[in-house]
Design a protein around this nucleic acid. Structure first.
Lengths: 344, 344
DNA sequence: TTGTACGCGTTATCAT
DNA sequence: ATGATAACGCGTACAA
């Protein structure tokens, strides 16, 4: 063997770094043969193919990702775009989603890059796209008016959104938030809770728009009317939620439907503070289950979505797209209604 | 302009992709001049330098990461190795850490790859290292006997551990877990809680070893003895913890010190189930704060660590290392003792 | 100060 | 079926 092999930086007994040329020379074949054996592309004799593969197995050869990337104009990297961590509360969703995506990425020989952004700053994305560091992107949250979607569309990078998106051409993976909420509310109504209050916030996000839509659809299905005073879609802070709960108690409703686990958490705490017993004095349900809801003395009725799975599906759809298959543009995932004490 | 520019895959009005040659031709200079202007390396006239930079600003030119990577043998990628998500409970630590790392990475023009592994499988790492997809790695959890550390050492890839490590040559960033626990326990003892029970598990992890060590040191500092029956370091499941709590109630201790928020959560619930009032009938403290602890009727005394910061520091140390600066091999971060009702 | 020419390690195209 | 050779786009000695 030649002695001019580069070794890795730090001290240690690391193995030398081989190239396909090294392998080729060692085997008395040409570099292109080695390349073919590895990629499986192009004609190659079964015998030599096995010989090369065997040698590679035993040796410390790994193809150089950068070189491969340069030659093929592919990076084998995907990026996942995460919202900035305002509060730890809604981290679970995005992180679970991320792990799902990573799992599928790995098993398809892709690596996953994380990018965090607030809702407005495009810089990090522009850099990635510009430098061509990734083959495709996963957007984990969508807005009614979404600058990221707009940017990604015009940039030409393949991408998929977790969450619905108005443009039917965009690859989308989502739970049936609207359908799930509709079914939940219809169930509540059918159990005698005719006045279901809706506590929400952030109606700029698609997921919230869908959930609220489901709520209204449920009433429409029963040919019943919702009342304005039951509906609060402007809640962001804990104190706002607390105040809304107080207001609704005076208004007199049968059940408080919370847009997500965060709101539900605040609602349950406020009710406890007021000495209002669940479900005796007030019913409660959440449009999104998380572990937060397990910490109450009373179990909470909620919608359950398989979050890991949505991450997996998103990555899979994207990878299919990159592979030239034409995945269906909208992948709708199932939900589960978990009926508990809080709506007894 | 020539017409043979490649454009991105999908349909859209994306800008054409330029190379330094395009830029060079456009400006009537050579490619190397452009390269120099960008990198800042090598002599170049201030005037032409500005001219090139200006043009690049206005144009849609971005250097091709793969080509740069191939030429320089650098990827400008870091990887962060996350434990597999067994349960959502200890996700917050690693994810917050990840965001901290990502923040620093971004601001240094690095991108961050995520890799999830169970404690044993080296494959994903081997692929990354082999393919040279990253310049360095962040290991977010350390074990007393750590196969990952061993592998990374012998592989020669620069890396930093979040959590302590026995090898003094390894770059490490950690909170002073031992010191923090020691101070906390000394405080508890000084407040009259002479019999502090220790509830822990997973003594294979460094962080837990350190915490337990702090506990013992506190007693040593007071020249007092701990009793075997106060100490439970074999707890993993909820039911084991519940049983340990029951046992300890019979033994009669003054305070239950929980190794982490997960254990603390289980302990508080078990005490509530048993009708044991905190702090009247039993005191409780946790060696690690998380939002979990906010969900109890009683506020919990705990140690607080700035987790985002440990992620930032880890990335910074690694980047410094890659830049050839010699960062101190052990970076110790501060802690905070949060005294609450549970140890009144 | 600037340009030329070659190398980085792989894939793809053409011969053989 | 296999081998030589030219890209891929950037960095960098070396020459001018």
């Amino acid at each position: 063997m030649s002695m001019d092999h580069r070794t890795h930086t730090a001290g240690g007994d690391e193995k030398e770094i081989l190239t396909i040329h090294d392998v080729a020379r060692e085997l008395g074949v040409s570099a292109s043969t080695v390349s073919r054996a590895i990629s499986g592309k192009g004609r190659i004799g079964e015998e030599t193919r096995q010989r090369v593969l065997q040698f590679i197995q035993d040796s410390s050869f790994h193809p150089n990702a950068a070189a491969r990337s340069l030659a093929q104009s592919r990076t084998f990297n995907l990026a996942i775009i995460m919202p900035e961590v305002r509060d730890l509360v809604d981290m679970p969703f995005f992180h679970t989603c991320m792990h799902g995506a990573e799992e599928v990425a790995q098993s398809n020989d892709y690596d996953l890059l994380v990018v965090t952004t607030d809702g407005t700053n495009l810089r990090p994305l522009e850099r990635m796209v510009g430098n061509r560091k990734v083959d495709g992107m996963i957007l984990t949250r969508t807005y009614a008016k979404d600058v990221f979607v707009e940017y990604l569309k015009q940039s030409g990078v393949p991408f998929v959104t977790v969450g619905r998106c108005y443009d039917p051409k965009v690859l989308q993976v989502d739970h049936d938030n609207s359908g799930a909420c509709k079914e939940l509310v219809m169930l509540l109504i059918s159990k005698g809770m005719e006045k279901v209050a809706y506590l929400g916030g952030g109606m700029d996000q698609m997921v919230n728009i869908d959930r609220f839509d489901g709520y209204r659809q449920a009433y429409a299905a029963y040919r019943m009317e919702t009342e304005k005073k039951w509906i609060r879609t402007d809640l962001t802070t804990k104190s706002q939620i607390a105040k809304a709960v107080d207001d609704l108690l005076k208004v007199g409703v049968d059940c408080m439907l919370c847009q997500d686990d965060y709101i539900c958490d605040a609602v349950v705490h406020e009710l406890a503070d007021k000495g209002v017993s669940i479900p005796k004095d007030m019913r409660v349900a959440s449009c999104h289950y998380s572990r937060l809801l397990d910490n109450f003395p009373v179990t909470i009725t909620s919608l359950k979505f398989d979050i890991m799975d949505i991450g997996r599906k998103a990555a899979q759809v994207l990878i299919d797209q990159l592979a030239g298959k034409n995945p269906s543009t909208l992948t709708m995932l199932d939900y589960e209604i978990s009926l508990k004490e809080s709506t007894k």
